[in-house]
Structures are given as C-alpha cells and as structure tokens.
C-alpha cells in the first residue's frame, strides 16, 4: 500500500510542476517588461527598476529559476502588488470557497452520475435508458457557465428558491451555506455528471455480464444484494479513477462559476489578478490550484486502493 502511494505521489509531481514552470516561463519570456506592465503608465523608471530587482528579473534566467523554485518549496511567492501583503496570506482567504465548491460539485457529479448510470444500465435499451443516454449527451455538451445562467434564471429569478448570487460561509449556518453553494455546484458538476453517467452505464453493463455476478445469483443472494453490493462494488471503480480528472476540470470551470455567482474564491481572485497584472497572485493561484489538485488526486488514489484490493498487492 505504501509503495503504491509512493508511486502515485511521484506521478503527481508533474501535475504540480509542469503548470508552474509554464507560468514561470510565460512571465519571463513574454514580450514587454513585466515590471512596467505591473506598475502601469504612471510609474517612474526608478519604481520599475526597483520592482525588477525585487522580482529578481534583472538576474540571468537560471538564477531566477532557482530563486523561484526556492520560493515555491518554501511557499513564499512574494508580495502582491495590489494587496500589498504576502501572496500566501491572501490565498487562504479565497481557497476555502473554491475547495468546498469543488468538493460539493464532485460529490454531486458522482452521486448523479452513479445513480443515473445504474438506472440506465438496469433498464437497458428501454425508454428510460434512452432518456438517460440522450440527457447525458446533452449534458456533456452544455457549457457550464451558460447552464449556470439558466439555473439562475429558473431557480433564483423565476422561482426565487435560491439567492441570485453571494456567499454565506458554512460557519454562518449550514442551510444558508447550502443555498448559496447548491446552484454553483450543480452548474459546475453538470458536464462531469453526464460523463460519469455514461461511464457508469457502460461499466455496469460490463459488470452485469461478469461470471461473478452469475455466481452471486447462483448462490441464492437476492437481486438487491447482487446489484447493490456485488455489481456496484466493481462497477463504480472506473468512476472513481476519473474523479481526479473531473476535479481538475472543475477547478477550471470554477473561475466562471465564481464570477457568475459572485463567490469570493480563487478563480475570481485569479481573473481579478490578471486584470490588475498582479503576477505574484497569479502565480500563487496557479500553485494553490495545483496543490489542491495533487491532494485530491492522492485521496482518490487511496479510495481506489480501498475499492480495488488488486491494486494494493501489485
């Protein structure tokens, strides 16, 4: 088990470093002077030179890389130009919303995907199955930010069940938090739940043809147990393995969703930092998302190993 997790951890490292290195190179290799762009038109030559020095942009590229790498490892990404405080003090204020939103969306997507997939598989080729399959194809094709707008129109503007926008932290009451997180999470999860529905359906259909399902039936176990324990146990494994990719996708979709619902999360911070040319915050945002993703993926790997003992002993 430990060896397996160690191996998974090594595989996750590129997920953290590849995007960060790209951001590093983008800043240094893009045309124009980043210090000048950060400070805007009114800045004096002295101010720009000072910032260049502060960011280390006056040194050779490989030295910059080592300094940058040290900053990453020690989680020190310097000062935000806009907030005038260390990046790593700003990020935690925004990361919580994003992580919660992603987790809720992922949970919703898995629940919807598994349930719909199983219902579809058990009704193979009848109208219910066809309805689910068609809905899933539509779901995969719906842009989540547009879906979010439709949800707002239907549930917030017309039916007034949920607030149009804004965020209540869970500490202020779980129900209040739930009403502000549900629609964003649903919108964020719609494409992934459709993907998982398709995956669960085909996985369940495969498993139902497996000999061990016939064995369970031949042992006299009731259909409820055969499907709920024997079939689900293996059929849900592929869904778990794609949950990591889904989480990655969602951490991207989160940007638009946070803007639409005015949630104070990392995605919104990132877009605002882009508009303000606040590069340290951009870098911090990318690093945080990469770290969240890495932790999520490791958790999913543990879950995978619990669900499938064959992995543990390989």
């Amino acid at each position: 088990m430990l060896r397996y997790l160690g191996k998974r951890f090594l595989l996750i490292l590129p997920t953290i470093f590849v995007p960060l290195i790209m951001v590093f190179l983008l800043l240094r290799l893009s045309p124009g002077d980043p210090a000048g762009m950060m400070l805007g038109d009114q800045a004096t030559a002295d101010q720009i030179a000072a910032l260049r020095e502060q960011l280390g942009l006056d040194r050779p590229l490989h030295v910059q890389f080592l300094i940058w790498l040290k900053g990453i490892v020690t989680l020190d990404l310097g000062q935000s130009i806009f907030f005038r405080e260390p990046v790593m003090e700003i990020i935690p204020r925004y990361a919580g919303v994003t992580i919660l939103l992603t987790l809720v969306a992922l949970t919703l997507a898995v629940l919807i995907g598994v349930a719909m997939g199983v219902i579809s598989a058990l009704n193979r080729n009848n109208p219910i199955d066809r309805g689910v399959v068609t809905t899933a194809v539509l779901g995969i094709s719906v842009p989540e930010f547009w879906f979010a707008l439709l949800l707002i129109f239907l549930f917030s503007v017309t039916l007034r069940w949920f607030p149009v926008s804004g965020y209540t932290p869970p500490s202020a009451g779980l129900i209040a938090w739930g009403t502000t997180i549900f629609l964003p999470a649903l919108a964020l999860g719609v494409r992934q739940s459709a993907l998982m529905t398709r995956m669960m359906r085909s996985s369940m259909l495969d498993v139902l043809d497996e000999p061990y399902i016939t064995t369970a039936r031949a042992q006299g176990l009731p259909e409820r147990t055969v499907l709920g324990r024997y079939a689900m146990r293996t059929a849900s494994i592929p869904v778990v393995t794609v949950a990591g990719l889904s989480a990655g996708y969602m951490l991207g979709g989160v940007v638009a969703i946070e803007i639409i619902f005015s949630l104070p999360g990392l995605g919104r911070l990132l877009v605002e930092a882009v508009a303000r040319r606040d590069y340290p915050v951009v870098e911090g945002g990318v690093l945080t998302i990469a770290l969240v993703l890495a932790v999520l993926n490791l958790l999913i790997d543990v879950l995978y190993a619990i669900l499938d003992p064959r992995i543990r002993y390989k």
Partner: peptide, 24 residues
C-alpha cells in the same frame, strides 16, 4: 426460484478466477 439456488442447488463454475468476486 432464487431461493432454490444455494439451498437446494449448488453451482460450480468453470473459471473460479472470474466466478469469484475480484474485490470482495
């Protein structure tokens, strides 16, 4: 009918590797 299975009729399959559950 299912109640007969196990209680009155036992079944031995050809390929035990696939006939036994892989993750239980």
């Amino acid at each position: 009918r299912r109640k007969l299975c196990g209680n009155e009729i036992g079944f031995i399959f050809q390929e035990p590797m696939t006939a036994l559950h892989p993750t239980l």
